[in-house]
Design a protein around this nucleic acid. Structure first.
Lengths: 128, 128
DNA sequence: ACAAGTATGCACCTTTTGGTAAGTATGGTT
DNA sequence: AACCATACTTACCAAAAGGTGCATACTTGT
């Protein structure tokens, strides 16, 4: 289906929702500095908090927790607390989260394919 | 292809680039409050500045120009100034821009399909 | 002279987002 | 009774993104 078509469908819907197109809605879920990475690593397999933190290099506790919480209320991620001491908490994608991961594949491929061009462009944004 | 696979491919690449996965790169291009909408309307057909502004309801001149400029340096959008008075400037998607639009289709559909759930979740983000 | 029409620039402010560094909780181990 | 591991919290600050309103350019038609 052409982008136009899928967007027009959502425009029809927009009369009853605050979103004009589904793209808007979807981007609110995935935008956040560390969310792509979190999705990346959780798509692989469930992970304990500390384990995940080691994967997502450079993230602070505050940020990681915050982004995980948002993904959790969005229903993308499931948090399981084993109530042990020391704490053991496992994060994983929900089935809904996996549908999102699937929808992201083409975008991810597009990004991978054009990484160098995008990179140069981002530099140009500042320079020019 | 599974999300994992396409992401792992980009991870290999990441040794030479600042992006860990293509998703990161792609999201930098489309994130911006009005960019989804701009893509939406330009995917349909080329538009003059004022025409586009009327489509993207609520956007200010400053924002619209700014987002268009970024999309332009990113190579997504082409700007054509006809050097007339009063000014006539036309914006349209480049071929590269259309490849992006294609890659966004599944995400757009995903968003459209789950608009109501996402909406509720965004409210919950604030409440809880 | 001057108003109309069109795309853009700029100065200033508010809001949102992200970052740093410290602190808390708890039961088992020493 | 001090200490460890682990997940999470908090207070505070910096940077980025977004918003408002006014200014500018220039030529055609009045």
């Amino acid at each position: 289906m052409h982008l136009l078509v899928s967007m027009v469908m959502s425009t029809v819907r927009s009369s009853t929702t605050p979103f004009i197109c589904g793209l808007d809605a979807a981007l609110r879920v995935v935008s956040g500095k560390w969310k792509p990475l979190i999705l990346f690593f959780l798509a692989k397999d469930p992970k304990r908090y500390g384990e995940l933190k080691r994967c997502v290099r450079g993230v602070s506790d505050k940020m990681l927790i915050q982004q995980l919480k948002e993904l959790e209320v969005d229903g993308i991620v499931v948090r399981t607390d084993y109530k042990e001491i020391p704490p053991r908490v496992v994060y994983e994608l929900s089935p809904f989260g996996f549908t999102l991961a699937d929808a992201l594949i083409p975008l991810c491929e597009w990004g991978t394919e054009h990484t160098d061009i995008i990179e140069k462009a981002l530099v140009r944004r500042v320079t020019a």
